[in-house]
């Protein structure tokens, strides 16, 4: 496993998830160290989103533990997990299309522990994504795909998470925009937010991540430092298209 620097902020132990009779995850275990970017990569249906859903409480694991800051959060309702400092920008962005950009961001602050920081968080979000500031009164449904993704991230940040879960932020975006989004993810991480990033785009994800976990059919196939995974021939062949 990861070399023990200090207590991991998030620790997943033997987690199995079932959708009816279909098993989405098989005894998955991994740690996320504070301040890092950890990326989950793997093919379609490998169980990446399921892992994030289990962590954020959107599905309940059948077995196993999920420890966040030392507390097992399995069984805690999803809306309460946000209050503990763990926020997910869900797969498919989950933007409230008929609400304005500003209203979307307001809703992101719904579970913020410190209501006084509302304005500061809003400013921070607009600083990361100046485009959103220009479009604050616009309905979110009229934003482009890239802008909607930016809004999804900015909105999640409004809750001041310690750990931010991102599910395929690059989905359906043009290469330049993807690069921009990845840059911003790095910036967010540098400002002290731990990030768990699910990506199809394994090469780019591993380039910005500290640690990588490769999923295959609901199990962890391999894991390691992102730089090492990038060098591994096996990984390059299977996931990076070499």
């Amino acid at each position: 496993m990861t070399p023990v620097k200090n207590e991991p902020v998030l620790s997943i132990k033997d987690v199995s998830v079932f959708y009816g009779i279909i098993q989405g995850l098989h005894n998955v275990s991994f740690d996320v160290q504070k301040g890092e970017i950890v990326t989950l990569v793997g093919a379609n249906g490998a169980g990446k989103s399921t892992t994030l859903r289990a962590i954020s409480g959107l599905v309940k694991p059948k077995t196993g533990q999920i420890n966040f800051k030392g507390e097992n959060i399995v069984g805690v309702p999803a809306h309460d997990i946000v209050r503990k400092g763990l926020c997910q920008a869900p797969e498919g962005r989950g933007i409230f299309l008929n609400l304005s950009v500003a209203e979307n961001m307001d809703l992101g602050a719904w579970a913020a522990p410190d209501k006084g920081a509302y304005q500061a968080n809003m400013d921070k979000g607009f600083q990361l994504f100046p485009r959103l500031k220009e479009r604050r009164k616009q309905l979110a449904g009229t934003l482009s795909g890239g802008e909607q993704q930016m809004l999804a991230i900015a909105r999640a940040l409004m809750s001041q998470p310690e750990v931010l879960l991102l599910d395929e932020p690059s989905l359906g975006l043009a290469p330049q925009i993807i690069e921009k989004i990845f840059e911003i993810i790095t910036d967010i991480n540098k400002s002290g937010v731990t990030i768990l990033l699910v990506e199809q785009n394994a090469l780019q994800a591993l380039q910005i991540a500290h640690y990588g976990i490769v999923f295959e059919t609901g199990m962890i196939k391999t894991h390691g430092k992102a730089s090492e995974l990038l060098r591994s021939d096996e990984i390059r062949k299977a996931y990076l298209g070499d």
């Binding site: 999803a78 409230f96 992101g108 719904w110 999640a156």
Partner: peptide, 20 residues
């Protein structure tokens, strides 16, 4: 606005900490 968020996207609302 919380009610509107439930109408718009219940899963996203939950992910924002709304008790739907």
């Amino acid at each position: 606005r919380v009610l509107l968020s439930i109408r718009e996207d219940e899963i996203a609302a939950t992910a924002m900490g709304v008790n739907t």
